[in-house]
Design a protein around this nucleic acid. Sequence first.
RNA 1: GGGCGUUUAGCUCAGUUGGAAGAGUGCUUGGUUUGCAACCAAGAUGUCGUGGGUUCAAAUCCCACAACGUCCA
Length: 949
Amino acid sequence: MGLPPIDLAVFHNAGFERRQCRITQLWFWTTDKNRDTCGDTPEDEYTFIGAPLIKGFDMRGKALKDAMREAFLNFFEDVQHTRIEPYPVLARWRDDIHLTIASIADFQPHVTSGQVEPPANPLTISQPCIRLTDVDAVGRSGRHLTTFEMMAHHVFNRPDDGKMYYWMEECVQYCHQLMTDTFSIPVDEISYVENPWCGGGNAGAAVEVIVGGLELATLVFMNLEEHPEGDIELKGDFYREMPLQIIDTGYGLERFCWAAAGTPTIYEAIYPESVSWLKDLSGFSTVTSKWPELDLDTLLGEMSRLNGIMNIEPGVDADELQTTFLRRLAERGIEVTVEQFSSITEPLAKIYAIPDHLHALTNMLGDGLVPSNAKAGYLARMLARRTLRMRDDLGLAISLPELAKHHIDVNLGGQSMKQTHDGLLEVLRLEEERYGEMIRKGGNVIVTQLKDLPKETEIIPDEILFQLNDSHGLAPDMVVTLAKNAGWNNVLIRTGFAAEMAERHARMAKQAAQSVESNTLIESPQHLPATIPLYYEDVQQRDFDASVLATLPLLGDDIPDGATHGIILDKTCFYPEGGGQEGDYGSLFTDSKRVKVLDTQKVGNLVVHLTDGSFETGALVHGNLDWARRKQLMDHHTAVHIVGGAARRVLGPHIYQAGANKSVESGRLDITHFRRLDRDDLDAIESLANEVLGKVQRTEKIELNRKDADKKYGFDLYQGGAPKGNSIRILRIADHDIQACGGTHHDEPGQIGSIRLVRSAAVQDGVERLHIVAGKAALDYARRQDEILRTTSKLYGVPQHELPKTSERFYNEWKEQRKTIEQLEAEIVRLRTSGGGSDTTVIDGVRIAIMEVSGDLKKMTKMLKELTLDKSNPTLAVLGSREGGGKLMIAVTEDTVANERYNAVELLRTIAPHINGGGGGRPTLAQGGGSNADGLDDALAAARSNVGL
RNA sequence: GGGCGUUUAGCUCAGUUGGAAGAGUGCUUGGUUUGCAACCAAGAUGUCGUGGGUUCAAAUCCCACAACGUCCA
């Protein structure tokens, strides 16, 4: 069974009829007797271009958005909805997505699963969203955006508990009233299309609101969940009703603005100042003035109308699309040539896309994101680089920070940000610097990669393009530009290459997804009650009594040496590994038996003690913690929080925890920052952290439900990752650091003693790893360092403070002496071979030098140079050394009678067997070695006889 | 989280099948000229990222680590 028709009184009262779309086959409601399409089909054009369908909103840009948003929110406030402030665009309360992609994302997963109460019910919100999936189409079509605001009214009904606020009838009623009253949209222009929605395991009926060919809103009635025995079938899957029934609506703010402005594209409606500014900067009028007969507004208007019905999606072949476009424009009486079309649309697409990209970028950075080469930070870098490329293509002489500053002034005036404006502009300045560096290097890389290709080459091999893109960040069209600059004038990108590259990336992503697997520690235990944690109530407690609920065999190969059993108790003060803090060690015992706890882990809501022995179920055991270990772990854990707070204070509001680990030896904290830290930064953070130890008397541990926690402290709470349940445990170190954290912490920070920042390392671009030692570990560390200095200082026989100077002197002297030795060795060879010494003979104008020397192949090479590089003295030299089983080296002077007469390789082959060796080389230089140094005399003798001595 | 690339003189980078460590630029000295990023000659500068391995022989092949870069999710 599918879903029943959506048959509402509101439709009938307003004179709507239910029809089936001739093209999509979907059912829709309309008052227009002549309409036989649902409105969102390839045959439905935008009717609002040049003829706005929303009346009473004559402003443009930010003012228009503000007015539209207010009108929407006010309308719903008037009908008993609570207005909720928008969430950040970085979805930090979630670990499955980086960016807020819809207003409902604010409430996923905990509110939508029913675990957590919504902040208000029903509620209304206008949520800034970022979606990068269509980034390629932005600017090229008249309507795609990466950043948009989703206006919404949400309801969370629980009919089983008698909490039913409203459902379809009222929802559509509100929507219809908003459309017709607040926005004065003619009823004839509205279609309500029935199109069930499903995704992520949920589904429900849905109504799309189409106005003038544009989908303005979607109303989703999510009341179904996927279930194999469900009796409702949608698109091949089975669903059943769920207790929580959610209305999820989405009204595209920018689309409302467009319908109110009736501009040729959506960009002119929402970013008019930016568009005209960029047109001026790029000299766009000089392009259009070439063809005064073209009416640009009409052309763009017609294009937008066509855009609505011709899908410009990533991967669509550009040439083919252009041909179709020109044909359809001609059908409408607009004659443009290919040249006119591309000279107008190419720069224009960039002029449109830049403000959109800047909007997304400034919002992301404003939320404190740091650009990076991985994770969410990469998304920001990608946008920054796309913007820079478009800027360069347009030939704009303006920096990225200047572009952003203009955008902020014009389009984001007054919006509060977490990151400071100066910080944001600094981040962009650094991004631009990196981009410039990449282009500069790219020029070199391209010349190297293409150097084997003839200059008249047209097609660059796919493999080279893939590699340049993936490894060097040079997109194919950049490669073409740079290659042309370097002299390959005919290169172009072959048709279909972009699609193939996308396919290749998709394949790689698929492979990567397959390689993820998880292993389990124990067999899922049968309905045991959650272990009661004693480690929160009293972090100092190290002894306890408990009864054994189960002893299970351990599975998998990720278990400590000697561990054989997993013991589950009714309560414990052993902390299980979590939040980056390692598990506790210790022992469990009865009067007659003692087992070691080698690690503690959490499985579901059970604490599993990994032990080297077992107990009977029901046994009463006494537990004893390895307190030194726990104390050290707590030192490091609390220290990590303090250092995080100190880093934020010192470096700026964008400092966010990207990961952490606390072991006995040290603590590790990964923080987001846009440049490498130097020792001065570390010192500043370290000093502040130690100050906090002295100043803050007590840490505060608070337990709140999620709704209140979010409200009171915001999403920076979730730096350690998004917690699962409704109850949030919060650690507060005065105003220094406030975080949700399930670890064990000191009540008094002073107990840590001292904190040292040992060093920092780069985990990835934009993420710095701080290595921290605290408490006893700090002391141990200092002692180890001291020991190293003492040993070294004893070795050199100088006081510790002289060590750097002495090392430098020793190193320089070593270098000098090495050079001197080389020169002396060469001198010895010269002396032995000059003046007719016994080691040399002359045969028919070729000097023959056969002798034993000392040294390895490298030294012998130097000697050979002395003997054979002088072309005025043709020489055959055979050197032998007893080092390492015997070495032989033979050279003849190149381009002389010597190499005409003698072949070094052949000679080597005949004499090498005497030292049980082999070798090879070129006819003028051969080298070899063996395992019988005693045979060296024979080898040299063989060489002599070979040349006739 | 996954993939790929790079690391050689102060700088920018070559280095082919494993067999003598290279170019340009900069530097020093001398000459020539002082208006060009001037010209000529000679010279100095190297832990070929670090540590292992294979080999008679490693900048080159293999492994680990590190730093840097880059693409994708």
